[in-house]
Design a protein around this nucleic acid. Structure first.
Lengths: 198, 198
DNA sequence: TATAATAGTGAACGAAAGGTCACCTGTCAA
DNA sequence: TTGACAGGTGACCTTTCGTTCACTATTATA
């Protein structure tokens, strides 16, 4: 009782899977990083694959809770500058939060092997962000700070370049500052192009 | 002599590494797929890692030959419709050519483990495309079919959404047609926004 | 034709993998 | 107090891994 080993195994698994991939991870090292011996892990999960599935369950559940429903949509910024600020906050958070970084890496590494990872990867990297910003841009058009246009297309055109820079940060963490500057430059460029002057 | 086994090993390695990753690939299967027994491979490469390095050498050399210098830059389209056509041709080729698909997958899977894979991944997925289209857009601005603007920023804004769709095709090959349609829609949207009317 | 290199075979090896099991130990409910 | 059980240990099992090696068949060259 009062034991969180089962949860700590998932944390360690996330860390190791995101670094070495599923195939490149072994239970010995995983157990050692928790200060126990490998057979101990099997008291909590019946196999390596069971750990993987539990981790994916958790990631899917987390995504559903935080980005799944329309309740958690961020507020529509009420100015063009507000869009820049909000974007920078979101990106700054997502490229520095270790857990989210590791989640992206795992999905990147396992997307071709596991159907659920594939599905979640598409949400994380493409459709999820686009949906959120479709809502935001529709709102900004209503408020008059953005030219009337197809909000879904604008969201696609806005989020995918930023997503590319987030991936760059995951791949080459040294370039985070440079990438952040590029995010801001792009955001301002976007507003210059699509912004409504009034 | 007159033997291409060494090259065929690299082909098989590309295929297996792109499917299962480096750690998830074993020499037995690789050899078997070539119709020989695993020890035979070691007549041509001294280790699994040597195969990996040779494959990366080849990929780096190939990239250098085909996208490295400014000689191989595609011609600047002389109309807005020409940009759409050229884009569709390039994307259509790159999402259907098995070898290129496998190359992208390998780089995706090994980018966090191998420095050279990381470097090549950034070129493939981000900077390479951007550089090509920086040149193209600069040319189109000179010809008057594109509004004057920062060509590098436009190239970034144009290529990263397309790159995101290429990644989607690698991840979910069923959605290729849908993705291609989205590429075309985006390309036309881009022209509508940045095109020079005259 | 003799020779030497090349390409491939199959058995074997040690290391490392995932997984099992008997056993120990502390905790808590009956 | 006792007994069941959750959590952890260490020895052990089987399989698979990458790699080596003695050997054979083929082929090019001297």
């Amino acid at each position: 009782m009062a034991n969180d080993t089962k949860e700590r195994i998932l944390e360690a698994a996330l860390e190791m899977f995101s670094q070495n991939g599923y195939a490149g991870t072994n239970i010995r090292e995983l157990s050692a990083s928790l200060g126990l011996v490998k057979s101990g892990v099997y008291k909590h999960y019946e196999s390596k694959e069971a750990i993987w599935n539990a981790l994916l369950d958790e990631m899917i559940a987390y995504y559903g809770e935080h980005f799944g429903s329309s309740e958690h949509l961020p507020p529509v910024p009420d100015s063009q500058e507000g869009l820049v600020t909000m974007t920078m906050q979101m990106v700054n958070f997502t490229v520095h939060d270790e857990r989210i970084i590791m989640t992206r890496k795992v999905l990147t590494l396992e997307q071709f092997r596991d159907g659920r990872a594939r599905e979640l990867a598409t949400k994380h990297f493409l459709t999820g962000l686009t949906e959120i910003f479709t809502h935001i841009f529709a709102g900004m058009m209503d408020k008059g700070s953005l030219r009337r246009d197809d909000p879904a297309m604008l969201a696609f055109a806005y989020t995918t370049p930023i997503s590319a820079l987030i991936h760059l940060c995951d791949r080459e963490p040294d370039k985070k500052e440079e990438a952040m500057a590029q995010v801001e430059a792009f955001s301002r460029h976007f507003i210059r192009v699509y912004g409504q002057e009034d």
